[in-house]
Amino acid sequence: MEWLTGPFEVTFVQRALWGGMLVSAICALAGTWVVLRGMAFLGDAMSHGLLPGVALAALFGGNLLVGALLSAAVMTVGVTALSRTPRLSQDTGIGLLFVGMLSLGVIIVSRSQSFAVDLTGFLFGDVLAVREQDLLLLGGALLLALAVSVLGHRAFLALAFDSRKAQTLGLRPRLAHAVLLGLLALAIVASFHIVGTLLVLGLLIAPPAAALPWARSVRGVMALAALLGITATFGGLLLSWHLSTAAGATISALAVSLFFLSHLASGLRHRSRARSLGAHATATDSAAVRATSALTPRRPTERT
């Protein structure tokens, strides 16, 4: 048991665990809609689009979180505006914003003589450096994400499955789409300094995708995704402590591994059910044949 509980007796590992748990819950709320609507590329683009704001904040000695939030706001407005352009597909607009924002961030970094921006920390995060004020910010972000998810659940649900029906029901799909982008931005901004922009998709996409085959409702997917994210956080911190690996990368790798295990188990369950149904159908057919044979009148045997 010492191997299991020993690392979490250290204060900074405890804070990392709490931070990862809060991030897992936030990403479960936003990531479920990302998976249901097929918005993985958008999540990747928005996470990398934070670089200009973070670079400017670091260059002028500002708050990195505020810089990331401003960049996320620019990305959200840009994606919303481009999605309303009839001659331009949404993927094209997202790709252009992605490349443009990333290029701008690299230019800002290259202009810094002292390379003030720690790109390694931005890309891969530092979950073991979580402070108490970070936990308070994450707690506030979780409450905000929960409020948005509850208030916008009906509109998000209609938007995910039939945007035309959402328009018919008066749910204002364009506004719902913009709010959903804001929720995604909130999850990414709250998570990037914990696991980094390259790894945030691990917690944003993998747990909801792993939960999808087992849950019967959207709320069920969110709850199970949060549980899987917390499991990945606990297991990742434990493995990184004993194996001396990068904590954020280990957490994300474990989250992705849980996704593959989930779909493997789901496939095996589906095959087992198919075989059971096949065997049941065969037995039913055999019984039907026997019953039919018993009911069919036999011809009298002719005597010679």
Rank of each mutant, 00 (worst) to 15 (best):
P86W: 08
L295K: 07
M1I: 09
G235I: 07
T304C: 00
L56S: 09
I205T: 05
D91P: 00
F60L: 15
L238T: 10
L201K: 05
A291Y: 10
G236Q: 06
P207T: 11
L88S: 06
L277C: 05
D285M: 07
G220T: 14
S217L: 08
G182N: 03
A211I: 03
E302R: 07
A160P: 01
G152C: 11
L254T: 06
S163K: 07
L264T: 15
A247K: 09
V189D: 03
S262V: 02
T304V: 06
Q90H: 10
A73G: 13
P7N: 06
G235A: 10
G67H: 06
G267H: 13
S89K: 05
L212E: 12
A225S: 10
H177C: 04
A274W: 11
E9R: 06
G62C: 12
T296Q: 11
L142I: 09
T168C: 01
A185K: 01
R299N: 14
F41E: 04
A30P: 00
A283S: 13
V54S: 08
G93P: 00
S112Q: 15
G139R: 12
W3M: 08
L128N: 11
R87V: 10
L29P: 00
V130F: 00
H177A: 15
G19W: 04
L295F: 11
H177M: 10
V130P: 00
G20D: 08
E2M: 02
L69V: 13
I94N: 00
S286T: 13
G235S: 09
V54C: 04
F192V: 07
V195K: 03
E9D: 09
V109A: 15
A68F: 02
G248H: 14
A209N: 05
L203C: 08
A225N: 02
L199A: 13
L102P: 01
M101G: 09
A232N: 07
S103H: 12
D285K: 05
A187G: 04
V74T: 10
A72W: 01
M1S: 09
G248Y: 12
V54P: 01
R298T: 15
F41K: 02
A190G: 06
S112A: 15
G31D: 07
S266L: 02
L268P: 05
L175A: 15
N63V: 13
L277H: 06
H177N: 12
A291F: 12
F60R: 11
M46N: 04
S83F: 04
L56M: 12
L212I: 03
A155E: 15
H48V: 10
L203H: 07
H242Q: 08
L254V: 09
A211W: 03
L56F: 10
I26F: 01
S191P: 05
R164K: 09
A209Y: 05
V109S: 15
L29I: 13
S276W: 15
V150L: 11
R219V: 04
G31L: 04
L51C: 04
A246W: 01
L144I: 14
L69H: 06
V130S: 02
G235R: 07
L17D: 13
G267P: 01
R219P: 00
T231Q: 03
R87H: 05
T233Y: 03
L171I: 08
H48G: 07
H193Y: 01
P300Q: 03
H280P: 01
A73F: 13
D162N: 14
L59F: 09
L180S: 01
F192Q: 03
V221S: 04
R299V: 15
R273Q: 14
